[in-house]
Simulated assay, not measured.
Amino acid sequence: MHRLKETRGEPLNDHDWLRLACELALLCPPSPAAFSVGAVVVGADGREIARGHSREDDPRVHAEEAALAKILPGDPRLPGATVYSSLEPCSRRASRPRPCSRLIVDSGVRRVVLAWREPLLFADCHGAEDLAAAGVTVVEIPELAEAAREPNLHLLSGGSAR
Rank of each mutant, 00 (worst) to 15 (best):
M1W: 09
H2E: 15
R3G: 04
R3S: 07
L4R: 05
K5H: 15
E6K: 01
T7N: 03
R8H: 15
N13K: 15
N13P: 05
N13M: 10
D14F: 10
D14C: 08
H15N: 04
W17Q: 10
L18S: 12
R19P: 00
A25G: 15
L26P: 06
L27E: 13
L27G: 03
C28W: 12
P29L: 07
P30V: 07
P30I: 01
P30M: 04
S31Q: 01
S31W: 01
S31G: 00
P32N: 00
F35V: 14
S36R: 05
V37T: 15
V37L: 06
A39T: 01
V40T: 11
G43P: 03
G43L: 09
D45A: 08
D45Q: 06
D45Y: 06
R47N: 11
I49N: 07
A50Q: 13
R51S: 11
R51D: 02
G52F: 14
S54D: 04
D57T: 07
D57K: 08
D58C: 13
R60G: 01
H62P: 06
A63H: 12
E64D: 08
E64A: 14
E65K: 00
A66P: 09
A67D: 10
L68M: 03
K70Y: 02
I71Y: 11
I71H: 05
P73E: 13
D75K: 10
D75Q: 09
D75L: 11
R77Y: 02
R77T: 00
G80Y: 03
G80M: 04
G80Q: 08
A81H: 12
T82G: 11
S85E: 02
L87A: 04
L87C: 09
C90R: 06
S91G: 15
S91P: 07
R93M: 15
S95G: 03
R96V: 08
R98K: 11
R98P: 01
S101D: 14
S101R: 12
L103W: 14
L103V: 06
D106P: 12
G108M: 00
V109M: 06
V109Q: 01
R110W: 01
R111P: 01
V112N: 07
V113A: 10
L114M: 15
L114V: 09
W116E: 14
P119C: 05
P119K: 02
L120Q: 08
L120N: 13
L120I: 08
L120H: 13
L121T: 15
L121P: 02
F122R: 01
A123F: 09
H126G: 11
A128C: 03
A128Q: 02
E129C: 05
D130H: 12
A132N: 05
G135E: 01
T137Q: 14
T137S: 15
V139Q: 12
I141E: 10
P142Y: 07
E143K: 04
E143Y: 09
L144H: 08
L144F: 07
A145W: 08
E146K: 08
A147D: 13
A148H: 12
R149N: 06
E150F: 02
P151C: 11
P151L: 03
N152A: 09
H154A: 12
L155T: 10
L155E: 04
L156A: 11
G158N: 03
G159I: 05
G159E: 11
S160C: 13
S160A: 10
R162D: 03
